[in-house]
Design a binder for these strands. Sequence first.
DNA 1: CCTATAATTCTCAAATTGAGAATAAGGAAG
DNA 2: CTTCCTTATTCTCAATTTGAGAATTATAGG
Lengths: 329, 329
Amino acid sequence: MASNTSTSHARARPIAADGSDTATVGLAAVVVAVTEDEPKVLAIRSVGEDALPSGPLEPQHRTLETGLRAWVETQTSQKLGYVEQLYTFGDRNRQPDSVARPLSIGYLALVREARPAGSRDAEWRDWYRYFPWEDWRGGRPAIIADIQGALSRWAAAGTADERRVREARAQLSFGYGGAQWNDERVLERYELLYEAGLVPEAHRDGAKVWAKPGEIILGADAMVADHRRILATAVARLRGKIKYRPVVFEVMPPEFTLSRLQRTVEALAGLRLHAPNFRRLVENQGLVEETGAVSAETGGRPARLVRFRREVLVERPAPGVRLPLSRRG
Amino acid sequence: MASNTSTSHARARPIAADGSDTATVGLAAVVVAVTEDEPKVLAIRSVGEDALPSGPLEPQHRTLETGLRAWVETQTSQKLGYVEQLYTFGDRNRQPDSVARPLSIGYLALVREARPAGSRDAEWRDWYRYFPWEDWRGGRPAIIADIQGALSRWAAAGTADERRVREARAQLSFGYGGAQWNDERVLERYELLYEAGLVPEAHRDGAKVWAKPGEIILGADAMVADHRRILATAVARLRGKIKYRPVVFEVMPPEFTLSRLQRTVEALAGLRLHAPNFRRLVENQGLVEETGAVSAETGGRPARLVRFRREVLVERPAPGVRLPLSRRG
DNA sequence: CCTATAATTCTCAAATTGAGAATAAGGAAG
DNA sequence: CTTCCTTATTCTCAATTTGAGAATTATAGG
């Protein structure tokens, strides 16, 4: 339960000087790295559920972003490079146990390496722990079957009109029936599960949901407050952005092989790519340049080491890693 | 000056109960329509500069979005359909005359038609009044020459290092030198002008800028507070989104001709498109369907009337109006 | 030397794009 | 009613970009 964990993400209750609403503003960061081909996110372990590094906006913070950086650094001793604002959440509905309106501004940060995580309770976690249905690298995840079942029962429980709408939404989001899987609909999927009550957060928040606690989809970790929602927003944003901006390089070491780059993109997108076409795209777009060195780490033929070509930022209008999917699972 | 206009966007000063910062949260809407092939935005005329419909978040607002809708409706009697959150601005630097941290959450709203604007001081304005350099439909806008000149002087005024960085940024943003024009860099361009002090807001905010007031780029309207920044964010977002999501249809009437659709996209993107290729894209993607009727409004051959095919939302993963540019101005 | 493994290059058909010519269907002018 | 003007619409064609798979190369290990 959220109320058990009175760590830094608990919020103070402000008093408004006049009728107008004041809000304590929470800042929360999704700090992403990719280690050994797995996407990782920095999490704060608390008694119950995990939390994102977060804290309230304070007077000494010159900008929202500096406030965020400060909180992440004190809580995880991780310095941030690339940072981008995601979304501001402010529903009254969620977190009903607080008088002040909980306003949280979510940020996405990309860092180069997942070091052992500075502080004792900060830990790097595979982000698919929170969204096991998002990892299609090994084909359709088994958990989708459970989800599909639960969503069908949820759809059936509605009125005739609701039924069709719900069924369509479920198929569209999770890619069955007519629709096909879309890697970017991460938030849509999480929100759908929340609405249907298939996720513990919905019950904890006291949201009016159809599902009984017994329907909860198991095998996925929940998070404190609205942090899993923020994480879903981050994954969605990153998966979208990777395709038209060269942001993957923010999580790569200075030198890397093309297959490492590919596996990093695959890790983030949760999809398998066709290797020859992937390299063709990356090279044709001039995203990387030769270092001259080779790396013989893997079993087979040694791979050339390349580095990101910063010049592309100037040359091309919107270079990203377009995804050459392979149709075979 | 911002302090002259004590209308609804003036903000109250909250008192924090403890050390932590409280902020009055302002909501601001960029309400967009396209009338007679010109992109319009709803503006509130005040004594000095224009403002966006806006107001503080209040206790009775259940969600941020309902608060926003309420403010827009009371100020402009315009009901909103499609609404999307843009960004939360919270720099301490801007608006130094306020004790409370001004936090403003910007929204983009799309509406179907620009009616004469309900209230007396709400008015539909061509959005290129605020950004004349953004309209390339008639070729490169004349004002770019002035901007280029002023930015060159700004670049030259820096140290050797600064000079190169500034020159590169200017060229990249405004598409001269090596770089080419990118319709989506709207915010980047506005921020650059602000930083260089070429825009009245920078001086009004007391920002530390190079330019003397005499350098200000004339022929563009400023706005209250950070509203022009929010507008720039909206234009950028819309120009980006139009290419991969069928959002144009939110500003179209239920039935329309393909050339009207094209001119609407052109109005928003500020670019000319190649008509035959535009229709090919729209039709191949199944974005529209026949109504059977024709419209003989224009001089030449009567055009078929089509409507948006809602089914595409289910069928295709990310259908938008890709932009088949024509190379000739 | 043979084999497994991974990296890399080639090939080829299919689809998409960019550009312009050509055609069609009305209204207005004569 | 013929001609011209205007806009809508269809065609064509070359160039580029994709998707998919086969083939080749370079190492390490037996």
